[in-house]
Amino acid sequence: MDVAPYLDTLLLLLVTVAAIKDLESRRIPNRLLLAGLSGALVLHLLSPHPLDALLAALGGFSLGLAVLLPFYLLRGMAAGDVKMMATVGAFTGAGDALHIVIVAWCVGGVMALVIIIVNGRLRLAMSNLWAMLRPMLLRLPRGFTPGVDGYRSAGSIPYGVAIAAGTIVHLVGRYGPTPLG
Rank of each mutant, 00 (worst) to 15 (best):
I117M: 08
T92Q: 13
A78I: 02
T87I: 09
G109Q: 08
V110P: 06
V114Q: 04
V107R: 03
N119T: 08
L129Y: 05
I100Y: 03
P141L: 09
D149L: 01
A94W: 15
L124Y: 07
G147P: 10
P141W: 12
R121K: 15
G80A: 06
V88A: 00
R142C: 06
L129R: 00
V118P: 11
D96W: 13
V88R: 05
F144C: 00
A78N: 09
A97N: 09
G93V: 02
F144K: 04
D81G: 03
G108F: 09
A90R: 08
V114P: 04
L133C: 14
M136Y: 09
R121W: 02
W130M: 14
F91G: 15
V107P: 09
R142P: 04
G95E: 15
G147I: 02
G89L: 02
P146S: 07
M111E: 10
L98N: 12
L140E: 14
A79G: 07
V114E: 01
L137T: 05
M111F: 10
G89C: 10
M85A: 15
F144D: 02
P135W: 06
G95M: 14
V82L: 01
T145W: 07
I102K: 11
R121D: 12
M136I: 14
G109C: 01
F144P: 04
A90H: 06
L129V: 06
N119P: 15
A79N: 01
L98I: 08
G147W: 02
A90V: 08
V148N: 01
G109N: 08
T87R: 01
N128R: 03
R142V: 12
I102Y: 11
H99Q: 15
G93Q: 02
W105L: 05
G120I: 06
M132H: 05
L113T: 13
L98V: 12
V82Q: 00
T92N: 12
D96C: 13
A79R: 00
H99N: 12
R139M: 04
A125Q: 04
R121T: 08
L138W: 09
G93F: 00
A131K: 03
M132R: 14
P135E: 05
V114R: 02
H99I: 13
A125P: 06
I117R: 14
R121G: 12
S127V: 01
I117V: 14
T145Y: 06
N128T: 07
V114F: 06
M132G: 01
M111H: 00
G95K: 14
G143Q: 05
M85Q: 06
N128Y: 02
M132A: 14
T145F: 03
M126Q: 12
L138V: 13
D81V: 00
A131F: 03
A125Y: 09
V82I: 03
M85R: 10
G120V: 12
I117K: 02
L124F: 07
G143E: 10
A125M: 14
L98M: 15
P146E: 08
A90I: 09
D81L: 00
R123P: 10
A90Y: 09
A112C: 07
W105E: 01
F144I: 01
D96K: 13
L137C: 04
F91M: 11
H99K: 14
A104Q: 07
A112L: 12
